[in-house]
Write a protein that binds this DNA or RNA. Structure first.
Lengths: 257, 257
DNA sequence: TTTTAGATATCGCGA
DNA sequence: TCGCGATGTCTAAAA
């Protein structure tokens, strides 16, 4: 195998003709490189649904692991994509460069037909750094598992992330009176869906353990319809703020100084 | 005649020094251009949550509308992002190029510190094409609204996308016996959440209209726990396939020939 | 593989 | 603006 192209210096083509672009892509796709193509193209997708966009200028990203993204000029989401691909094919059909990214499970295909390539690049992309995130629900769960009394005085932890056949219970506790309490956590405003999720767990625990089982929904906020539903089911809402709770616990340094 | 915006030649910097990169970005960010930077950088985010990644090679995308994406070598998702930003600032701190993208509502900030820029590009990106998707839930809904008898013989449509205070009812029908039927559609395998969603609607309609109200969950598949829950609530599952149903209706040409 | 639930989800619609 | 639900959601985790 020839030496990996683009291992040190990025390679760039500006306004290439279709033959040059085809060769460039053929030699660099599937080599562990990040390949980008900016140009005028059409995009078609067929799989779980089907979509089509006519000619326009887009940026195509081909990642080393096979991820395939077609970005337009606006927004967070790509207009078409493939989270991971099994094969990416490059061909030239009468001056049109065709990129076809396919995967199985689900069986899907994205086809980009590039009528005019304006810019193509290829470069190695090394990133072994670990991604650290704080403020997720699991952080909130850990903090409250340590100090369940913050949810309600006298509350004691029985179990955490308890898997059941209807889903995982965030926190299973016992209150001051010895009753079982199912606690469902949300890091965002809680909706009706959160309430029905809690209901499923309470029903299950009640069925398994017998006796009265309480339900508590802990979140920074709750929607009005969710509060109504919650009260009708006899459950309780407790306000908790993830960002308030965590710095006191984690004592991590400020990200921006 | 001045060249059209998108006809301009893309601009490219390879292995620029930090001053050159800083100037390049300062002059091109906020000009309606798509700007990309590939290089070694750290990324920090603070907002609804907080995250940090140490040095690694990433690709930064700055879209004309302010969307901001930092992509690593793997996967569909960016490692950091901002769906739309109010301001993007460029500065140079002792040889490190710093990009700071902020937005309000929610108040958030992403900061990229580029220690070594390897490739930077800027180009106009024109795309006025309309995106056409078939096979979404709303397509399925339209098809079944036309022919409710495909869900159950004798079923007649009363209303569609009916907004209520607990959410929108996909299809409200009357069966052969004149009873009200709430139909909830899913284009994917239906889960317990879909069942509780249906339950909310049935409860509401029953409360408002009085009398017995039936519930039907129409989807291509249903999970086993969802089926159990559905049956316990006295509802019915009907199998419908979006991709089967739509081609007969739409008669669109094959995307790939 | 199936199922569930989280996500800095994002996005769009309706009240 | 809030609330709700779809998304070609994607992704990780657990059974």
């Amino acid at each position: 195998m020839p030496p990996a192209a683009g291992a040190d210096r990025p390679e760039v083509l500006i306004d290439p003709d279709s033959e040059t672009l085809t060769e460039f892509l053929r030699d660099r796709v599937h080599r562990g490189l990040l390949v980008t193509v900016l140009g005028e193209c059409t995009v078609a997708y067929e799989g779980r649904a089907a979509s089509q966009v006519q000619h326009g200028e887009r940026l195509v990203l081909l990642k080393p692991d096979g991820a395939f993204l077609v970005h337009g000029p606006r927004g967070y989401r790509p207009i078409n994509w493939q989270p991971s691909t099994d094969t990416v094919m490059v061909s030239n059909e009468g001056g049109v460069v065709v990129l076809t990214a396919t995967r199985r499970n689900p069986d899907e295909r994205v086809e980009v037909r590039i009528r005019r390539g304006r810019l193509a690049t290829a470069a190695a992309l090394e990133d072994s750094s670990q991604f650290l995130l704080t403020g997720s629900e699991s952080d909130l769960q850990a903090a409250l598992a340590e100090r369940p009394e913050l949810i309600e005085p006298g509350l004691r932890l029985e179990d955490r992330e308890l898997p059941t056949r209807v889903g995982g219970i965030d926190l299973l506790c016992r209150d001051a009176g010895g009753r079982l309490v199912v606690v469902e956590l949300k890091r965002n405003r809680a909706s009706q869906a959160a309430v029905t999720q809690l209901k499923r767990y309470v029903d299950l625990v009640s069925e398994q353990a017998g006796g009265e089982v309480r339900g508590i929904l802990a979140a920074p906020e709750i929607t009005e319809p969710a509060r109504t539903l919650l009260e009708r089911m006899g459950f309780k809402y407790v306000e908790v703020d993830p960002m308030d709770l965590l710095p006191a616990e984690g004592e991590q340094p400020a990200l921006f100084s």
